[in-house]
Amino acid sequence: MSQIKAVNPQHERWAQLGRRAVWRLAGGVLVLWAVATLTFFALRLIPGDPVLAILGGQSANPTPETIAEATREYGLDKPLAVQYGLYLGRLVQGDLGVSYSQHLPVTKVLAEQSWATLQLTFTSLLLAWLLVLLLTVLTAGRRRWVSNLASLAETLSAALPHFWIGILLLAVFAFGLRWFPPAGSDGWRTLVLPSLALAIPLAGFIAQVTRESLEFTLEQPFVLTARTRGLSETAVRFKHALRHAVLPGISLSGWAIGALISGAVVIEVIFSRKGLGRQLYQAVQAQDLPLTIGISLAVAAVYVLANIVVDLLYLWVDPRQQGKTA
């Protein structure tokens, strides 16, 4: 660095972010392959004959001829390794197979159900961050009792399970006050209660971390410098301290996407919403191999993508990290 390169730092930053994104995407493909493989073999280990599952379970009472035909049709007579190879081959072409239980292409089920779950998770994440910012920026480093009270509220909400909040919200706002519909997945009104149920515990968790980091940042010399320039308390918090304080929370958000999707399984069942969570729940019960793998892959893909976005966002907020890692 003896000569600081005379390139435009701004361009350099974008180029670095781009390179980083490409690397992370390549890593993401590996993750997806691992997910496909693990789910494929894990489901074979579950007791029970997949052919029976295809033909509608024990109660359908299929004839041996039907069983043999179905076995051949779905390629279940071939050795496991061959089945795996064929499966991967189709996967690369974007063919996820046909659901045993719904007799529909898996891609079609995914297309129908994904949007509802994505909507739910991302609304929850946004809502959670909104709560975090409101709570921490307004109360951190203020009078002792104010921040103690806020801190208590955070701990409490972080400790509450999704399903409990979900049922409570249903009881009060849907059945009691009748402000929001108790079930369904059409329109923004149906989204409010389920995303709140997911957002509240998450907000409590992220806010605890953000508060601590905001209080630490407000003690730093550069914040004092900002004050000596005549900045108001609000300006100091929003222009300087917040950017530092959200860093740990951003890291947590990548993890939070995963937690939200698994939370969505329960919430979708409670609020009778359509979505991947509910489908996954049913598919595992029905031993519907293609659908289970398809949903797992879709969830993993969202998780991988979300983490890449979080990673890049982190670099964007804290440019010092660039160039430190390969």
Partner: peptide, 11 residues
């Protein structure tokens, strides 16, 4: 202030 590394906003 002393030490601009921490007295200027590092980001």
């Amino acid at each position: 202030l002393q030490d601009a590394l921490v007295s200027l906003d590092p980001l």
